[in-house]
């Protein structure tokens, strides 16, 4: 009896130690990146050799980084708009649909997530070459939309599943046409979902790297792509500065999404 109790205590302590270690390991790499961005030296090292904001100053002086930043924003906003439009409409259509066409939509939308990004990247590169779309922002936006749409779509499916569809009947019944009823009755009920979906789509695009690497050209390269090329040439703390910005943007987006809904729900949508 006593030995059993003892064993349970040991187990409980080991369990606690286990997940707290993992917790630390999950966040440690990000903290390392942020710490090295305040480095005073010209090489990254952890712990950093002296603290300064010099590399932050460099960032705002660098045309290359600022251009990449603009590219990332253009692609991110483009992806958010296209993916949100497609995902919201598709999920809404599926709710109204009583045939079985809708049932192929979910697997069709999901499959791209299971294809390694390298394969998607080369496939789309060949395709865009064939159709003559090379070098345009659209190549990256469309590729990122392939990954962002499933997120928006499943967020919206989950939101719509909690929506009381009798309200739509009531709106039609009171004289609201299809567009009016969507704007006045459906949208106000699901706007949080649309917002979170769009936000996640933006973040996915902002952070995506492999497809962007294949599809971008010198004039359209995004932050992760430029960071990648920089890392391979020199390990100066500039990449850490940029990474810190990206981490902070994701953090900000996560906070916004959590305010709009809740963390548990957002987490489940990401799986």
């Amino acid at each position: 009896m006593t030995s059993n109790l003892h064993r349970e205590t040991v187990e409980a302590v080991a369990f606690r130690a286990g997940y707290l270690t993992l917790f630390a390991l999950m966040l440690l790499p990000l903290l390392v990146v942020i710490a090295t961005s305040f480095s005073a030296g010209s090489r990254i090292a952890f712990p950093p050799d002296g603290l300064s904001l010099v590399w932050y100053g460099e960032f705002f002086q660098s045309r290359r980084w600022l251009e990449a930043f603009t590219n990332s924003l253009v692609v991110g906003v483009g992806t958010a708009v296209v993916a949100t439009g497609l995902g919201v409409m598709g999920a809404f259509g599926q709710e109204l649909d009583d045939g079985s066409l809708g049932t192929i939509l979910a697997p069709l939308v999901l499959v791209p997530l299971l294809i390694p990004p390298v394969i998607l990247g080369i496939t789309l590169l060949m395709y865009f070459n064939e159709v003559g779309l090379r070098g345009s922002y659209w190549t990256i936006i469309l590729a990122h939309t392939l990954w962002a749409t499933p997120l928006v779509y499943f967020v919206m499916r989950s939101v719509f599943s909690r929506f009381d569809w009798q309200q739509l009947d009531a709106a039609h019944d009171l004289g609201a046409g299809p567009i009016q009823s969507f704007v006045h009755v459906v949208l106000p009920n699901v706007k949080h979902g649309v917002f979170v979906g769009a936000l996640l789509a933006f973040i996915i695009s902002l952070q995506e790297f492999v497809m962007a690497l294949f599809l971008s050209t010198a004039s359209t390269q995004t932050i992760p792509v430029l960071a990648w090329t920089e890392i391979r040439q020199a390990l100066d703390p500039m990449v850490s500065v940029v990474s810190t910005f990206l981490i902070l943007i994701s953090l900000g987006a996560l906070v916004l999404a959590v305010i709009a809904t809740n963390l548990e729900w957002v987490s489940k949508q990401l799986s």
Partner: peptide, 21 residues
């Protein structure tokens, strides 16, 4: 005629009031 063109009006079982209004 679709519902929104007909001058009929329904009181629903769960009332279907618009919660955001």
């Amino acid at each position: 005629q679709p519902a929104y063109e007909r001058n009929t009006s329904t009181v629903f079982q769960d009332w279907a009031l618009f919660p955001h209004k």
